[in-house]
Design a protein around this nucleic acid. Structure first.
Length: 817
RNA sequence: GCGAGAGUGGCGGAAUUGGCAGACGCGCUGGACUUAGGAUCCAGUGCCCGAAAGGGCGUGGGAGUUCAAGUCUCCCCUCUCGCACCA
C-alpha cells in the first residue's frame, strides 16, 4: 500500500522532464502581468566541482526563487560563472593545459551538478565571464569609464617577486615571500590602471541608507572600509626651506601640543629633506628596508622605529619649531603621508615620543582627572576635556572647540576643514593572462588610445606561454601586442595588462537581464524592468570588495544614463559557511565533504534539507556536528519517507478530515509563509514535520488528511522540489507541475487557536495548565484558575494578595508571605 | 586595541510583544515486528530527590527591575567574525 521513497529513481526523471517543459524560463513578455521577482545568487567560480558552500547557498537561493514563483511572481533565477582569474591560470601552469580548457571543463561539471540538484535556473540567460561575447562588454564598459575619467593610469607600489618577475596580489605573499618560489618579495613602483572609486566615496557611504535589508555587519564593514573621517588640513612650514607641508588631522584642537612632525618613509620629500638635514646616511637604510619589505609585512612595522631628518617644521598656531622624523608608523597611503605628532593625546605618537625622548605637552585637561604632567604620563589621553596651554583657546571645551579652531586657522590661511576617506582607488591591472585584456593601445604619438568599440573584443591569444618568469604572458607574446594606433596608424603596442576579475563580476547581473544582446552590455529597458534585484544571496566573504564594486558600477552607470537606479541589491542575504570541526574545510586538512556524493547516495532533496534544516541560513554549519555517521540514513531522508507514506495514505483514505487537522494545516501555512519570507528554512521544515506527524496520527485513527496532504506537498516544493513534484503529479494526480501551482492560502479564523492552554501560576510558578476557550473572559479565566485543585493545594489556604490575569494565556495568583 | 555578533539538554537548534524553557530533528535507552534493511513502528529521554504522586534546580557568571526574565538594565567571563598604526 505505502509507496517507498526512492530518490535515485525519482529525481533524474524529473530533471529531464522539467528541462523539456521549460518551466523555469523567466517570462519577458510585457503583457505578463505578474509582478517580477529577480532572485539573484552570487555566481560561482569554477575551481572544480561544486562544494558544500555552493550546496548551502544555492539550496537557499533556489528555495527563495521557487517560493516566489509559487507566490505568483514572474521569477528570473539566472546562473553563470565568474570564470576568469588566477586559479585557472595556476591550475594551467601546474597541469600544462590552457586555462580555458580547465575552466570550461569545470563549468560543465558544475552545470551538470546543478542540473542533478534540480536548481530552477533559467539556463537561457547563462553567462561565462571568459567568453569573448561577455568580456567584449567588460572591455566596452572599461572604455566608458575611461571616457569619463573614471579609469586612469598612475604609478603604484606593488608586490614584486624578483625571481618570477611578476606582480603578486597581497594574498600571494606568504610571510613576506612569494607563495610559488619562496623568494622574498620586494616592493616596486609600477604604472597601473585604476578605477576612480574614491569619487564615489561619499555616495557609497550615504546610499547605505537605501540598503534596507542588508545584514548590519555587512553595512558596518562597508562603512569602515570607506572610512570617512572629518577633521582639518593644516599647513606647516619647513623652517630650513620655507616650503609648506600639509597634514590631515581629526584633532586640530590639539595643535598646541605638537612636539614633533613625522613623514612616511615613502614620502617623496624624505630623501631631499634628509640630504639637506645631513642625515641621509641614517635615513637611507630605513628607506631601503621599507622597499624590500612586502606591502603585507609593511603593515606590521615597528611603531618605535624612525629617524630624525635634521630639519624642522614650524607650527602655524604658535610659530614653534619641532623636529621632523621619517617613520614607518606613518602611512603614505592615508591623509597626506605626513602628520603633526601630539604625544600627549595620541597613543601612537606617545609611544614614539617615549622611544625617542621627545617632549610630551598636555593641551587637553580631562574634566575628571587631576592635572597631569607630560613627563609623568604613562599613556596618551584621547578623551574630552578643557583646552590648556593653547593661547587664546584656553578654557574651551574639547572636542566642541574643533570648529572654532578650524575657523581661526582658515582666517589665518593656514588650514581648512577637510574630510578624509580610507577608501583608495581600485587597482584593476593584473600582469596576468587569464582575464579581460585592457582595450587600450599605447601610441608614441597619442599616448593612451582607446580601442574603437567596433574592434572589440580584444581577444586573448591562444598560443601563449603562461609559465611563470619574465614578463606577463601577454607582454611576452611575439606578435599579439604589436598593432597600429587607431588614431594615426603608426606602430603602437597594446596594453598587456588584464583586468581584475572583480571587474567581470561587477556587472554580470545586468547581463542576465539582456541575454545574448549584441548592441551593448544590456538594454536599459530590460535592466530597469528587472532591477534592482529583489534578493541577492551569497557568501559573506564578499561583504566588502565585490559588493562595493557592484555598487560603484551601478552608480557610475546611472551617472552615464545607462540605468535608472543607484543601488543594485537593496536586499542581501548571507548564508553561513560550511565548516568541519570548527575549521574551514581544506585539502591539506583532509576534511573536505562534497555535496555530490550525498546527492548520489541520498538524493538532492535530502542534501538540500540537510543544509536548510541544520540551523538558521545565515549561521555556519559545522558538518562534524550535524552529520554523524555518513553511512547512516539522514533524519530528513526518513522524514521524506514518512511524507510519502502519509500523502499516499491520505489520498487512499476516504474518511473526512478532522477539524483539528484542518486547523493545524492553516496554522502551518501561516507559520511557514512567515518563515519563508524571513529565510527561516529550519523552522519552516520543523513546522512541516509537525504537520506530517499530525497527518499520520489522523490517518492511524481512521480519519482523513487530504487537505493537509495537498498543502504539505506545495509547501515542500521550494525545499525538496523532486519529492514534492513526484507526490503532486504521481500520487495526488495533478496534471501540471507543483512548481507552477500556487502557494496555499490560510483562513485566519482557522489558523487561530479556538482553545488555548492556560497556565496557572502561584507566585510565578506554574502549578497547573488548563485547556480553555480562546475567547474566555478575564473573570472566567480567574474563576477557572481558582477552581483548580492543584492550585488550591499550592495555595495551601493562604490568601491571594494580587491576581494577574492575561486571558486566555495566563493567570498568576500572588501570595504575599 | 577598535567595531559587530553570540553563549540554551549528549548534539544541531526552537521560544515576534517579558508570560508553559528545550518545538522539530539527531543521538541514546527500552520494547514490538521482520522480507535482517539505508529497515520500520511504539514508548521514554534537561538535571537532582522520589516506587509514584509530587517537589527542588535550570538558558556563561554576578547583581538589579518585575506578579513574572533566555528575553529588559548594569557589571564580569568566554567564544566567533571583521578591521587593525586610518593621524
Amino acid at each position: 500500500m505505502s509507496r517507498r521513497y526512492d530518490a535515485a529513481e525519482i529525481e533524474p526523471r524529473w530533471v529531464d522532464r522539467w528541462e523539456a517543459e521549460g518551466q523555469y524560463r523567466a517570462v519577458d513578455d510585457p503583457a505578463d502581468e505578474r509582478p517580477r521577482f529577480y532572485a539573484l545568487d552570487m555566481f560561482p567560480y569554477p575551481s572544480g566541482d561544486l562544494h558544500m558552500g555552493h550546496a548551502e547557498a544555492f539550496s537557499g537561493g533556489d528555495a527563495v526563487a521557487r517560493y516566489q514563483a509559487l507566490r505568483g511572481h514572474n521569477v528570473m533565477h539566472p546562473i553563470g560563472w565568474d570564470a576568469f582569474g588566477l586559479n585557472a591560470e595556476n591550475a594551467a601552469i601546474k597541469r600544462g593545459t590552457p586555462p580555458a580548457e580547465w575552466t570550461y571543463a569545470n563549468i560543465e561539471q558544475q552545470a551538470a551538478s546543478f542540473r542533478r540538484m534540480g536548481m530552477s535556473f533559467d539556463w537561457s540567460r547563462r553567462v561565462r565571464t571568459c567568453d569573448p561575447e561577455y568580456y567584449r562588454w567588460t572591455q566596452w564598459l572599461f572604455l566608458r569609464f575611461f571616457e569619463q575619467g573614471l579609469a586612469y593610469r598612475k604609478g603604484a607600489q606593488v608586490n614584486w617577486c624578483p625571481k618570477d618577475q611578476t606582480v603578486l596580489a597581497n594574498e600571494q605573499v606568504i610571510a613576506g615571500a612569494c607563495e610559488r618560489c619562496g623568494t622574498p618579495v620586494e616592493r616596486r613602483e609600477l604604472t597601473q590602471w585604476f578605477f576612480k572609486i574614491t569619487d564615489y566615496a561619499q555616495r557609497l557611504l550615504d546610499d547605505v541608507e537605501l540598503l534596507t535589508d542588508w545584514p548590519d555587519r555587512v553595512v558596518t564593514m562597508q562603512r569602515n572600509w570607506i572610512g570617512r573621517s572629518e577633521g582639518a588640513e593644516v599647513t606647516f612650514t619647513i623652517e630650513e626651506t620655507g616650503e609648506d607641508v600639509t597634514v590631515f588631522t581629526t584633532r586640530p584642537d590639539t595643535l598646541w601640543g605638537v612636539t614633533f612632525f613625522v613623514f612616511a618613509i615613502e614620502h617623496p620629500d624624505v630623501q631631499r629633506l634628509a640630504e639637506l638635514g645631513g642625515t641621509w646616511k641614517d635615513v637611507e637604510p630605513l628607506v631601503r628596508k621599507a622597499q624590500q619589505t612586502s606591502l603585507v609585512d609593511r603593515e606590521a612595522a615597528d611603531s618605535k622605529e624612525g629617524v630624525f631628518l635634521g630639519v624642522h617644521a614650524v607650527n602655524p598656531v604658535n610659530g614653534e619649531k619641532v623636529p621632523c622624523y621619517a617613520a614607518p608608523y606613518v602611512l603614505m597611503g592615508y591623509g597626506t603621508g605626513a602628520i603633526m605628532a601630539v604625544p600627549a593625546h595620541d597613543e601612537r605618537d606617545f609611544v614614539f615620543a617615549r622611544a625617542h625622548d621627545l617632549p610630551v605637552r598636555v593641551v587637553i585637561q580631562p574634566d575628571d582627572q587631576p592635572e597631569v604632567d607630560g613627563d609623568a604620563m604613562t599613556e596618551a589621553m584621547a578623551g574630552d576635556g578643557l583646552m590648556v596651554n593653547s593661547g587664546q583657546f584656553d578654557g574651551e571645551a574639547s572636542p566642541a572647540s574643533i570648529g572654532k579652531v578650524i575657523e581661526w586657522l582658515q582666517a589665518k590661511g593656514r588650514g581648512r576643514a577637510a574630510v578624509n576617506f580610507r577608501l583608495r582607488d581600485w587597482l584593476i591591472s593584473r600582469q596576468r593572462y587569464w582575464g579581460a585584456p585592457i582595450p587600450i593601445v599605447h601610441c608614441p604619438e597619442h599616448g593612451e588610445v582607446a580601442v574603437p568599440d567596433d574592434q572589440l573584443p580584444v581577444l586573448l591569444p591562444k598560443d601563449v606561454d603562461f609559465q611563470p618568469g619574465g614578463e606577463s604572458p601577454l607582454a611576452r607574446h611575439p606578435t599579439w601586442k604589436h598593432v597600429q594606433c587607431p588614431t594615426c596608424g603608426a606602430d603602437a603596442t597594446r596594453d598587456t595588462d588584464t583586468m581584475d576579475t572583480f571587474v567581470d563580476s561587477s556587472w554580470y547581473f545586468f547581463r542576465y537581464c539582456s541575454p545574448g544582446y549584441e548592441g551593448g552590455p544590456f538594454r536599459r529597458e530590460d535592466v530597469d524592468r528587472w532591477m534592482p534585484a529583489n534578493q541577492y544571496t551569497g557568501g559573506v566573504e564578499h561583504a566588502i570588495l565585490h559588493l562595493l564594486y557592484c555598487r560603484f558600477f551601478t552608480k557610475a552607470l546611472y551617472d552615464m544614463g545607462m540605468i535608472g537606479f543607484v543601488e543594485p541589491f537593496p536586499r542581501l542575504m548571507n548564508q553561513g559557511q560550511v565548516i568541519y570541526g570548527g575549521a574551514s574545510m581544506s585539502k591539506t586538512k583532509g576534511n573536505i565533504v562534497e555535496p555530490m556524493p550525498i546527492v548520489e547516495r541520498w538524493g538532492a532533496d535530502t542534501m538540500r534539507l540537510i543544509m536548510l534544516f541544520a540551523g538558521p541560513f545565515e549561521d555556519d554549519i559545522d558538518w562534524k556536528l550535524i552529520a554523524g555517521d555518513p553511512d547512516r540514513r539522514p533524519g530528513v531522508h526518513q522524514w521524506l519517507g514518512r511524507v510519502f507514506t502519509a500523502v499516499d495514505d491520505a489520498m487512499a483514505a476516504d474518511a473526512t478530515e478532522p477539524e483539528s487537522l484542518m486547523r493545524l494545516t492553516h496554522k502551518t501555512i501561516k507559520g511557514v509563509t512567515d518563515d519563508m519570507e524571513r529565510f527561516r528554512f529550519n523552522t519552516a521544515i520543523s513546522k512541516l514535520q509537525v504537520l506530517t506527524n499530525a497527518m499520520r496520527a489522523s490517518l492511524d485513527a481512521g480519519e482523513g488528511a487530504r487537505g493537509a496532504a495537498r498543502a504539505l506537498v506545495v509547501m515542500l516544493a521550494p525545499l525538496a522540489p523532486f519529492a514534492a513534484e513526484e507526490l503532486w503529479r504521481e500520487v495526488i494526480g495533478e496534471g501540471s507541475s507543483v512548481h507552477v501551482s500556487s502557494w496555499p492560502v490560510f483562513d485566519p479564523a482557522l489558523a487561530a487557536d479556538d482553545t488555548v492552554t492556560m497556565v496557572v501560576q502561584v507566585n510565578g510558578r506554574v502549578r497547573d495548565k488548563i485547556e480553555v476557550s480562546a475567547d474566555i473572559s478575564e473573570a472566567d479565566a480567574e474563576a477557572t484558575a481558582r477552581g483548580s485543585e492543584r492550585v488550591a493545594r499550592a495555595l495551601d489556604g493562604r490568601d491571594v494578595a494580587k491576581t494577574i490575569v492575561r486571558a486566555p494565556k495566563l493567570v498568576n495568583l500572588v501570595v504575599r508571605d
